[in-house]
Amino acid sequence: MNNTQTIPTHPRKPNWFSRLANPGVFMGWSRHWIRPLALLTIVTFAIGLWYALFNSPADYQMGETVRIMYVHVPNAWLSQMVYGIMAVAAVGSLVWRHPLADVAMKSAAPLGAAFTALALFTGSLWGRPTWGTFWEWDGRMTSTLVLFLMYIGLVALWNTFADHARGARIIAIFTLVGAINIPIIKFSVDWWNTLHQPSIVTARGLTMPASIATPLLVMMLAFTLLFFTLHFIAMRTEILRRRANTLERQHVLATAAANKQQAASDD
């Protein structure tokens, strides 16, 4: 009986995800996305701001200060969404050791820090006329401040590692541990007594009239598009930075080897 088996000698063709996530391939396709994304962001912001400032009513309770919501909620949404993206990238970095996951994680952190800072800033400006105070140490505000400090810590941590591959694994673990804060932020208004209003997004949809929901949703879309535009550019920059570092390192090593060879031949 012929019991021979064949062993495939050709490397398997990478699947679509591997091809898409390869840094070189990413540089190729992302280049064509940046300009349309940037244009879409500008158009969406123009529509959103027109709704937010000129074509939406004052709230029956908060009056005109409801307009702060159109910049506060999108930044608060991004502060959590960006961390979610970083947590997914951290899994990609730890499980598959994917270089693009490291790049996505690193380049998202400063953007997330900026959006969280804006959520805190606009939240306090909204809180003063609404609650009578800029700040209250309640669950939502404190957990958002913790999120901001975590972003700052992660940015600082990235800057301490010269070896990005090693640093990425350690930072991925920290990122995943910190992800526990995201459900705390989300459900803090349900778990604890707070000045902050309950979630506006519920299982039944948005708890507000269409005249207020429309500018809010358009502004959320605009800020989300802004994030993706900036994130794509920041990821491409990080890939270029790594390429430049590699070229410089290779050049230094090649020069050192050539000098050594020259010295040996002179002797």
Partner: peptide, 28 residues
Amino acid sequence: IDLGPHALYIVSSYLGVTLVVALLIIWV
């Protein structure tokens, strides 16, 4: 539009967001 008695808070929040977003775009 007339932003009412809390105009300072509304204008400050939009200006702050504009400034930080502009700085973020320039930095990137």
